[in-house]
Design a protein around this nucleic acid. Structure first.
Length: 595
DNA sequence: GCCGTTTTCGGCCCGACTGTTTTCAGTCG
């Protein structure tokens, strides 16, 4: 049966994508054909964003893959080989030609394949620790093209890398967790199963995966769990708990519970720790104690009597007995949610269904993969009332950004497409680059013809905090600007945010009726939850945008909603929950919410 | 490796920045 096969170990898109991406990495270090390398990277990207399982498709309906531009016969046969044998011969061969740890060095900022090859061939450096030692001992400066500053930069990059290690993107966590839970459901008879921990709280990165389960036979489910095809190492295996390391390096914990304590355990293992500590303190003041087994009343009966269990089956009961409204997992960070829940004043958090449109998407005109028509069709499918086409501007040469003339052409093109589609409104927009002094990359005259102008920083990340703040604020003062995209430029687990005074940026945005973006791409989630709340508290409006570069990416909007929820946002704080008429007034700066 | 109104070979988005250079290689996006 197909489904069982899939569960037993069909390769996930992300794993496939990683193989392609690592082949590209190795070829690059080996100074292979740059165009072939680019093809592998492109394939990796496409596979990662597929809305169906690529391995399965390679076997059952290869034409579905073949129809995608950038996927050729070579890629399909490689996917099929991996789907059938679990490995790629070329990848295995390549891995034997270089120390595998070299690929880790690629994660360091400002270190690319050429320098890594040089370090490896001349100083025999293949690990981060060896590189750190060599930089400290000033050996790196002996190499051509390297000097004292290079050594300092390397040490800084190593420091940054260490800080970011050990956490995974939320979308990776959710995908792995979902796969594991689906497998357990099929493999054994589970009664209840749920994800807890930071996955359930929808934190932007997750450290490990926590799964809770109730079932008939605990031994059976533990065996199934440790026998999962993706398990690389079993760290612990007991009667009610097991821990494993999955092939991606992500740790997963399974806990087998009794039904009557499922809710208590879910509460306990969802955390956060800070939230739980605060909750336990409150319980104690009220004469209770909370553990993973339940909520217990302490002061009944005599000293010898065991505490009476008063709740445990559901989370609702526990919060209710503590005289709190049920706190959504996303808010459980001890950031004031318990106080609000006390008086029933928790925010009415935004939901995915509140989103009426997507205001940031790219097309084939620049670095997107689909046409205006196709993006509009995807918007209709998502149930949207409107979308905005916002391609790059000319400064982003790598994306073939639009100059004034091409933008004017695109405006006409959108009008033409819009005249043929009645189900959705297409707003005309641009993602315009903010140049180093805060000027915009396109003339005000052209920008003023658009419905929505998104301004972005894509270059010169290394300005001082003061310079960067000034630069961004200047751009926000341009009367044409509506939205500041990905305000800190971070890439989760890869690149720290550039230094910038966000409070000043938020203040300037509000004063100029500019909205701040939550870029929903799972590697960005920028603004972060915390900054999101900061913006909202200061009265700034938010736009949650997918930044889609292809049809599949529209679904990432959900991750923006997760972040918004963690940032305490309600629908009224987010402009793309507004009906078109109201949105238009905000974009024209005639109003700015009720603020 | 992928692609094709330049179609089965011969191309393949390119400009800015940095640190090391004295004319440029490497990295980033």
């Amino acid at each position: 049966m197909r489904v069982a096969g899939a569960v037993a170990g069909l390769m996930e898109n992300r794993d496939l994508a990683r193989i392609f991406s690592e082949i590209a990495d190795i070829l690059e270090i080996q100074e292979g054909n740059p165009f072939r390398i680019r093809s592998f990277r492109r394939a990796a990207q496409i596979i990662r964003d597929l809305s169906f399982n690529g391995a399965h498709a390679s076997q059952e309906e290869p034409e579905k893959l073949r129809s995608i531009s950038g996927i050729g016969e070579g890629t399909i046969s490689k996917i099929r080989e991996i789907a059938e044998t679990g490995r790629s011969q070329e990848f295995e061969d390549l891995k034997r030609e270089i120390p595998p740890s070299l690929l880790t060095l690629l994660e360091l900022q400002n270190l690319g394949p050429k320098k890594i090859r040089l370090l490896w061939k001349t100083l025999n450096i293949s690990t981060i620790d060896e590189l750190e030692k060599a930089a400290r001992e000033e050996q790196v400066r002996s190499l051509p093209g390297m000097g004292g500053k290079s050594e300092a930069k390397i040490l800084k990059a190593i420091e940054a890398h260490r800080l970011l290690q050990g956490r995974f993107r939320l979308d990776d966590g959710i995908e792995v967790c979902q796969g594991l839970m689906d497998y357990l459901r099929l493999k054994v008879k589970v009664k209840r199963i749920a994800a807890a921990g930071s996955v359930r709280r929808r934190r932007e990165t997750v450290g490990d995966i926590d799964i809770l389960v109730t079932c008939e036979s605990s031994a059976e489910v533990i065996d199934a769990f440790t026998g999962y095809s993706d398990v690389k190492e079993v760290l612990a295996k007991g009667d009610t708990k097991a821990s494993v390391v999955l092939s991606r390096g992500l740790q997963a914990d399974l806990r087998v519970l009794e039904d009557e304590s499922f809710g208590a355990s879910l509460q306990y293992f969802t955390g956060s720790q800070a939230h739980n500590v605060a909750l336990r303190e409150r319980a104690k003041r009220m004469g209770y104690k909370i553990s993973e087994y339940g909520l217990f009343r302490l002061d009944n009966g005599g000293e010898k009597d065991p505490p009476e269990k008063v709740a445990g089956e559901s989370e609702e009961d526990i919060y209710r007995l503590l005289k709190l409204s049920l706190i959504p997992p996303e808010l459980r960070e001890n950031r004031g949610e318990i106080q609000k829940a006390e008086t029933g004043r928790l925010p009415d958090l935004i939901k995915l269904g509140d989103i009426r449109g997507d205001l940031h998407m790219h097309t084939k005109a620049t670095d997107g993969r689909n046409t205006i028509q196709e993006m509009a069709a995807a918007g209709i499918q998502a149930g949207y009332q409107y979308i905005a086409i916002t391609d790059h501007s000319k400064a982003l040469a790598m994306a073939r950004g639009l100059d004034e003339k091409r933008l004017l052409d695109q405006i006409e093109e959108i009008d033409r497409v819009a005249s043929q589609i009645s189900e959705i409104h297409i707003l005309k927009g641009i993602e315009v680059d903010i140049l180093s002094e805060g000027e915009l990359d396109l003339s005000d005259e052209v920008l003023s013809r658009l419905d929505v102008v998104i301004a972005s920083v894509h270059s010169r990340f290394n300005l001082s905090r003061k310079e960067m703040t000034l630069r961004i604020c200047r751009a926000l003062e341009n009367p044409n600007v509506n939205i500041l995209a990905h305000p800190t430029g971070r890439l989760l687990t890869r690149r720290a945010p550039y230094p910038v005074d966000l409070e000043q940026v938020i203040k300037t945005a509000r004063e100029n009726r500019v909205c701040l973006e939550i870029n929903a791409y799972p590697a960005r989630l920028d603004l972060s939850d915390v900054h999101c709340r900061m913006a909202c508290d200061q009265g700034a409006l938010i736009s949650i945008n997918s930044d889609s570069h292809n049809l599949q990416m529209l679904r990432y909007i959900e991750y923006g909603v997760f972040t918004a929820r963690r940032g305490w946002l309600e629908a009224k704080d987010v402009i793309n929950t507004f009906p078109l008429e109201e949105l238009t007034r905000v974009l024209k700066k005639e109003e700015y919410g009720e603020r």
